[in-house]
Design a protein around this nucleic acid. Structure first.
Length: 249
DNA sequence: CACCAGGCCGTGC
DNA sequence: GCACGGCATGGT
């Protein structure tokens, strides 16, 4: 039985691969189709780690609640959201697609990449393509898939896939440096990748929503007030705001 | 028609 | 160092 908020976790904008199909949430991960819901007994070690079920969220959330009343409210409304341990490569491309884009369209582009270059692991279900499956892709190919100006960025990531996939055991500063050496990866995308695939909990992605909230609710302060759970706090603020709870300006 | 979306790049100062 | 326009696409 799942004892955290699965729906908020899967649809709070950290992942682009989950779909709702009937009573299940469905995604292709780890080269197979996963179908889960709130009643699922999660025993697969891959899923336990992916869903971050070994992390002490009771402790983290009790600390976060004490940091700020607005944040406390966000945790109350959004329940227990987990930070996923997603595949590094899939997260890199996913968040390159995210820039100056909206979540619906990011999901669509992500799905198109799977259908075009991934493996069909079950009829109608495609994996996200590994770097070697993309080695012959051209900019024109990608533009035909409607990724727009992100096409050369994706190509640069493919070209540098090997070094990109070596950042798992690098420290934050060096990981950031390697990530941002790729064209199209700046500070925001880099921090998303570190947070949502490497579980670097102090990474604090500053998108338009977060910038708005920080200005509105935490004027003059920065993410260090949320250490050592800045990334988790960020995700609550982001999701809470997107649900429509941003106070009127 | 405008403006926006989980930004970043190139240029100019 | 910071400010600005441009960028593909689709939605409102």
């Amino acid at each position: 039985m799942i004892n955290f908020d699965l729906e908020n976790t899967l649809f709070c904008g950290q992942s682009f691969c989950w779909r709702k199909e009937g009573e299940f949430y469905v995604a292709v991960l780890n080269n197979k189709v996963y179908r889960i819901n709130e009643k699922s007994e999660i025993e697969d070690p891959f899923l336990i780690h992916y869903l971050d079920m070994d992390f002490d969220y009771q402790l983290a959330l009790s600390k976060i609640r004490k940091m700020d009343p607005f944040l406390d409210e966000a945790v109350t409304k959004c329940n227990e959201i987990h930070i996923l341990n997603q595949d590094l490569w899939e997260t890199i491309i996913g968040f390159i697609l995210s820039q100056n884009n909206n979540i619906k369209r990011i999901e669509g582009l992500y799905d198109t990449l799977c259908r075009t270059y991934g493996n069909e692991v079950e009829e109608g279900y495609f994996s996200f393509p590994r770097p070697h499956m993309l080695k012959d892709v051209t900019e024109e190919d990608l533009r035909n898939l409607k990724v727009g100006f992100r096409a050369p960025y994706i190509l640069d990531a493919i070209k540098n896939a090997q070094v990109l996939l070596s950042i798992e055991d690098k420290d934050d500063r060096e990981a950031d440096e390697i990530l941002q050496s790729v064209k199209g990866i700046g500070p925001k995308v880099s921090s998303c990748i570190r947070l949502f695939s490497l579980h670097r909990l102090n990474a604090f992605p500053k998108d338009v929503w977060i910038k708005k909230i920080m200005k509105l609710m935490f004027e003059g302060k920065d993410e260090s007030i949320f250490y050592p759970y800045a990334g988790l706090a960020q995700q609550y603020l982001f999701h809470y705001a997107r649900l429509g709870y941003l106070p009127e300006v």
